[in-house]
Design a protein around this nucleic acid. Structure first.
Length: 194
DNA sequence: TAAAAGATCCCCT
DNA sequence: GGGGATCTTTTAT
């Protein structure tokens, strides 16, 4: 089941470079199996030729999903306590993905609040890559799962991406800081950083 | 085998 | 604005 008036993004939608796909994911819906959902308002691109990417030094146990078929969820663990979620794209064996950095909460807010006791306001439920993963219940179990068929899916409800998304450098990296591979919805109050 | 770094968050000042 | 939490993965010895 899925919300009325929505369709999953088809597999072919993910057959693009991360830099092409990232801004196209803005305003799409990330939906959990229990109905929790948020609108994607901030993303970053990572690819093999990028020194900041997990895939830059080749395939490992941890990043294997990044090198798998597109349209799947790459979930990794970091800082000893946080999970972060990516949409795998490109062709199989490409090692490229889009990091989902912030959502505007749209459904299942009660469950998100329970999952995110540290969030003092609803604005903080999904504002940041580890926060959104926690809010929707995404963890290592979901690594490698299918974004087209679920359990976690990206759906299109007819809202177009912003025609002029804001482009900036990426957050929290030490290498390739200068590359302009972060995009967000202009004016959204749910982005992690303006 | 050891050491360091990490696509972050939270709470304090 | 800054530091600590917390532990896996990666890289160096």
């Amino acid at each position: 089941m899925r919300p009325p008036g929505t369709v999953p993004l088809p597999r072919r939608f993910y057959h693009r470079t991360a830099q092409e796909l990232a801004p196209l994911l803005l305003n799409k819906l990330l939906v959990a199996p229990d109905g929790r959902a948020g609108r994607i308002v901030e993303v970053e691109a990572y690819s093999e030729d990028d020194p900041a990417s997990h895939s830059h030094r080749g395939r490992t146990t941890r990043n294997a999903t990044m090198f798998g078929p597109p349209g799947h969820l790459y979930v990794y663990f970091t800082y000893g306590m946080h999970w972060c979620a990516n949409a795998v794209c490109g062709a199989p064996d490409d090692g490229t993905a889009v990091l989902l950095r912030a959502l505007e909460p749209v459904a299942g807010l009660e469950k998100m609040r329970l999952a995110r006791p540290a969030a003092r306001t609803d604005r903080d439920l999904c504002r940041g890559p580890a926060r959104l993963a926690q809010a929707l219940g995404i963890d290592g179990e979901a690594d490698g799962s299918d974004l087209v068929h679920g359990p976690f899916r990206i759906l299109d409800d007819g809202v177009n991406p912003p025609p002029r998304p804001t482009t900036t450098t990426r957050v929290g990296i030490t290498r390739a800081k200068e590359l302009p591979w972060r995009w967000y919805v202009p004016g959204s109050r749910y982005v992690s950083r303006p």
